[in-house]
Structure formats: structure tokens, C-alpha cells
Amino acid sequence: MTKPTIEQIAEVLKEKFGQAVLNQEVQYDFTIFTIDKASILPIFRFLYEDEHFQFRFLTTACGIHLPENEQPFAMMYQLHSLVHNVRLRFKSYTSANDLQYDTITDLFPAANWMEREAFDFYGIRFKGHPNLKRILNVEDMDYHPMRKEYPLEDLTRYDKDDTMFGRDKAGFKKLN
């Protein structure tokens, strides 16, 4: 089997999914497709099942928060075709009031904890996930700490008060 070029993959994707592929760019030798949220699962399933491409390895997935953006949340997925050694990155943006993606755990069981991690840290929900609960943080935590609005210091701590050192509580900002 010949190694497919990025152009071939992009062409097939655009032909099959047309509008769903919103953007294609290359950054540091890595091709990134920005895709529509609703088409994540169909696109991945196609790339997985295609006899030629065989993107059957999920390298990693994570959430991203971009508060300045019109669509401030994103999921990043990286697929790897081990047969051809081609890596692709997919990004899909969503707005804050529609924080839900389709789960890809049916296709890649490894996505289970990655999606739980994204839920834990960003509050992104995954429709159809078998066990969507916090993974690294305590279960009774009531915020999603990797969002940019949360300062580094834990807001629920009462034993740390830096006001007498001229800094506000937790924010590391200087007081007047």
C-alpha cells in the first residue's frame, strides 16, 4: 500500500464531508483540520474504516479554552495511521452554551479517560459516554479548574491568605 499524502486525505475528506471541513492548515509539519462538531464521529469512523488510510490509533485528545474566541471551547484530537505513519490533528470549536460533543469511545476505547479529563478540567460533556465523571479532581468540586478564568491558586482553600503580603487572595495580583 502506498502512503497517502495529506492532499489525498484532504481531498477525500472534502469530497465526502464537504462543509464539515472548515479549515486546513499546517503548523510545524503537522496538518490540522478544523472540523464541524457534529461530524467528528462520522469523519473519524470513515478514517478508521477506510482500508487505505487506516487511522486506527488515537494518540491523544484534550480540551482547550480560548476565552477571547467567539467559540471559546475546543477539543483537540490526534489520530495516527500506524501503517503509513501519518499523523493528523483535528480541532473542533464550540460555544460556551453548547458544551457537548459526541463521544468517540465506541471507536477508540482509549478516549474514555481522555474525555473524562476534558470534562473534569473544562466541563465539556460527551454524549453517550459510558461513565462521564471527574477523573483527577475530587468529585465534589464545583468548578472546572483549567478554564482560564480560574486563577492558579485553589479558591476553596482557607489556610492560605496572602493579603498581609500585599497580594490578593489566590490571584497573585498586587493590591494597591
Binding site: Q27, Y28, T59, C62, I64, M76, Q78, R87, R89
Partner: peptide, 20 residues
Amino acid sequence: KGEVYHSVEGGNGELGFYLI
């Protein structure tokens, strides 16, 4: 500005850094 992914063969496998 940009995003970069680099992975090395760690003791346990692919240790990757995804940096924006």
C-alpha cells in the same frame, strides 16, 4: 505563535507535549 506537538519514546511509551 503557533502550536507544536513533539513526542519522545519515554520509558513507558509515547510521551507527547502538545504546546500552544
